[in-house]
Structure formats: structure tokens, C-alpha cells
Design a protein around this nucleic acid. Sequence first.
RNA 1: GGGGGACUGGUGUAUCGGUAACACGGUGGUCUCCAAAACCGCAGCGCGAGGUUCGACUCCUCGGUCCCCCGCCA
Length: 376
Amino acid sequence: MRRPPRTPPWRRARRTARPCDAWTRSRRPSSRSFESPCSVRIFSGIQPTGRKHLGNYIGAIVQYVASQYRGEGIFCIVDLHAITVPYSPAELRERCYDTAALLIAAGLEPARCTLFRQSDVPEHTELTWLLSTVTELGRLQRMHQFRDKSLAQRELVSAALLCYPVLQAADVLAYRAHEVPVGEDQREHLELMRDVARRFNARFGDGEEVLVVPEHRIPDVGARIMDLQDPTTKMSTTAASEQGTVFVLDGPQAIERKLKSAVTDSGTEVRRAPEKPGIGNLIEILAAVRDAPPEQIESEYADAGYGAFKAAVAGAVIEYLAPVRERYDELRGDESQLEQILQGGAAQASAIAAETLADVRERMGVGAPRRARTLP
RNA sequence: GGGGGACUGGUGUAUCGGUAACACGGUGGUCUCCAAAACCGCAGCGCGAGGUUCGACUCCUCGGUCCCCCGCCA
């Protein structure tokens, strides 16, 4: 359990002159029930790549689904981030639908959370520009992800790639989110966005916390799922071999083949040990999909050979993912319905982000003054 | 600002004005709980737009991206 901060972030932000319900006003039909309009707000950005794998699913997507019951979840399909590297326009559209369908299939409920496409809410890009005025160029150039990606890039290294972290900061800050559940690899970007928020507040806030400085929440439960062909590296979309990656939408026969050909270690015992990363990974996978402690898996399969154990893991994973794939197929077939859901989410998101942007513009002295704008 | 070079599967390369080849990688199989090794299959490529030509990956023009050299400014 995390100890709550002395002044909860949402209270601090509230001091900026906005009654709490103003945030949520007009975005929640009264039929929807929430514990409190001031519950913790959680923002997650999801890359519109259709091929989510088991590691993504267990490590992130399951957390998203859980967070809509813990607070106010805002889930954004970040197509504007996706275009910072070479891409195909037609495919991008498709991948957004793929991703939306997958998230809903996994359990995100459009009635319970806000799910939308980044480019549908122009406040993201406007805030990016405004925030770029309080972002150090040198810091962006030193970002590890930028350096890695620009080195790997054979084609144009775009300015957008450099500005990526500013857009990411805008994503979160536009909603005054309190928590950003991202992995360790995003720590650097998150620190940047915290600094940007602090600098903005210091320069334009006039003593008030106009932008909420979000907390980095590293998901606590998420097991690290490793590559089946190389259990010393994380399962990833860009792995050398697809054999090591179980995709959420893989069919039963593919899942079975991949799990059966997972590399194992010498020996025959099904137990976790530093010298047995392969079997350890399979134990973690089975534990995660069964929602059982790994110890229980170990004792249950203590006498089984590797072969039988693998078959059991394969069966469990197939069963685990089957309903997701079925719901996905159903949802993905109806693009107009998906579009409708995304539009609804965008309207909800816009209502929040527009408020933040009005404050930011006002503080920065950009655009018409608020008093003039609100005159009849 | 000026000059030069490059661009071919995922990667690295080859070839040719006449149906584009090789290696590695990927993928399916045999073997193994697996993996690796080996063997047998399979898939995948001419940066883009024009032009010359009966025919262009090849020649020409323009554009794109990358690399190199020189100048200028400080």
C-alpha cells in the first residue's frame, strides 16, 4: 500500500480555483456511478500497434482493466506518437481500431473509463507547443530513447521524434492525472514531464499548482514475462524471432507450438532457480494466467516432466486468451461501432482537457483573456 | 552556399538494357521436453515520380533519405 501524500495531488490541484466537479461535469451521464468525482485519475497511453503480446497483456493491459475499478481511468491510443517514425497512413487507421478492439475485448468498459484516440483531442498538440516553451532542448537530445531510436533510424530523424517526450507530457498533464502506470523504461520521460509541470507552475503558476505533477506508478503485480526463445530478455514485439513471443491474438495451435518449443534449461525439475530462467518464466506465465502463486505451480508440477508441464502451460494460456480473441473478432468486425466509442471517449476527454488548456492559456497570456471569452 | 558518392528481401552483398542471385535472418517440418547442430521445404527485394526504349533494377531528369569533402559565418 502506498502511503498517501500529505496533500493529495487532486486537492492541491483543486486549489487552482476549480471546484472538483467542474472536472467531470458534462462528461458523465448521471446514470454512471463513481465512488467519488474526485477519485484518483490514472492516465495511460497505448501505442496503436495491433500486435500486443502476452507480456503486454499481463504486464499492462490487465492493469488498465483493474484501474478502472480503482479510480478514473483515461486511456489514450497515441497515434500522434506513432507517427514520429516512418509509418503507413492507411495502416495507422487500422491499427487504432485494432488496439481499441483489443482493449475493449480485454475488459475496458467504455462506460466506466475514457477511451479515445489522441489525435481526436487537439488539446494534446496545443499543449505540446505551449509546454515546449518550458522544456530544455538539451534534455530532449539526451533522452535515451531518442538517442537509441535516432541511431537505429535509417530514414528521416524527425523533429517530432525529439519532441516525443513533450507530447507525452502534454498527454498526461492535460488531464491533471495523478498516476501514470508505466514501466521502468519510461522513468526518464516521466521525470521530464514532472519537471516540465513543476517549471510551468513555477513560472506561470503564481504560487498555485496549475498542472498536477503526476506520480510514477510502476505496476506492482505485473510479472515480467520473458521471451520464450531467450528467457534472459523481455518478451517484445521487436524480438529477433516471433517464436519467442505469444501474441494475444495468436490462435490455439500457434500458442501451443510456441510454448512447446520454448527453450528450457538442463534438468527436469519444475522449479524457479537462477540457473533455470526458461522454466522459471513458464512458471511465472502459468501463475499469472491462473492468478495463483508461483509456489503453488511448483508443488503442483513437481513430479511432472518438462514436456507435460509445457503442455499444461500451453493449455492454460490458450484458455486464458481465447475469450479475448473471440470478443476481439466480434468487435473488430464493426468499425463504425468502434469509431462511435472512440468519438464518445474523445468528447469526454476533450471536456477535461479543454478546461486545463483554458487555464494554461490564461496563465501564459495566450489568446483572449478569460473574462472576455466568457462574456455573453 | 558549393561539390561528390550511395540507395536491390529484415540485414549484408552480387548481377544484368531482356522474367534479379547469394549469405545470414525469418518461417514450416524431421530430431529433442525444448533449444542448439544437421537436413528437407517455403516466403520475402529494385527509394518515389516522370522520361528514353519493343523492353529500365540498369540510361536520363526531378524529388526523397543517408554519407563524405570544401566554402562561409562565428
